[in-house]
Nucleic acid binder design. Structure first.
Lengths: 138, 138
DNA sequence: CTCAGTGCAAAAGATTTGCAGCCAT
DNA sequence: ATGGCTGCAAATCTTTTGCACTGAG
């Protein structure tokens, strides 16, 4: 929790109970989560309103504490940037999300695609398929 | 328009004026478009309701006439499958979408990611950055 | 003729906004 | 103390659903 305090102080914003709880949640879950999932996760304690979750995640994105991730379902999710750049394996059967450490195309960022004269600054790659469990060991 | 008629007959569904117009639109625009963009595009003629656009795009997706694409903004877009598998360069400044013909990672599909024992069946890769115009020739 | 297809209106789900009160600094 | 932060409620935006009508086969 000390780390959370420090991070919030560093972004030059007020260090409120709600912001600490939300950032802590993102660390604990350590995977892409929607605003609603954060809200539900914290609803037991009933300390944070839905609106605050949305506004806080947006603030965190601006401050680069989280990155915005979109899967096929179109729901906006956020993932803590303390996890380094990586992609995801998403099971089409059970929905499990598995982080993929190695990024084969990281070299793309900062490079210019010649044909289109386009400067690439970021990229999203998500792989869909079926996890071991759902394939029944096959 | 003949081609449109033929395609619709082949999926074993009724060949209505609305479906023809929507499929025709997807061919003409030849890029990922949202249901609302299709609706607006056709609203001049006022022949197709919003609900029908949504239901028709869903039908087309089931029949593999279109594929569903999601960009960072979270809006669901569809693109005709008569365009072969490819990815997109999306300009963060003007929003232009440029198709990227070559897919460097097509070989991933059907392969198993060893570490996670995960069978990959499809993948999404979108590159974000700045187009020539928005970089002012730099 | 008959049922799949359509379109309105209303519902649902995710996210944003207005505003009055609260609390970190 | 005071301006940023919060949370309710209401608005907005995208998408889905219920239902009566229509038209393609």
């Amino acid at each position: 929790m000390d780390r959370v305090n420090e991070i919030l102080r560093n972004i030059g914003k007020k260090c409120t109970e709600q912001r600490k709880l939300i950032l802590q949640t993102l660390f604990e879950l350590a995977k892409p989560v929607s605003a609603d999932e954060v809200y539900e996760y914290l609803s037991e304690t009933n300390k944070v309103g839905r609106t605050t979750v949305y506004r806080t995640l947006e603030l965190f994105e601006r401050k680069k504490l989280v990155r915005r991730i979109i899967f096929k379902d179109g729901i906006i999710r956020y993932e803590s940037t303390h996890l380094k750049h990586h992609h995801h394996l998403i099971c089409l059967s059970c929905g499990e999300v598995i982080p993929l450490e190695h990024c084969a195309i990281a070299s793309l960022d900062g490079s210019v695609i010649e044909d289109a004269d386009f400067l690439v600054t970021e990229h999203f790659l998500e792989l869909y398929g079926y996890c071991k469990k759902c394939r029944g060991g096959k």
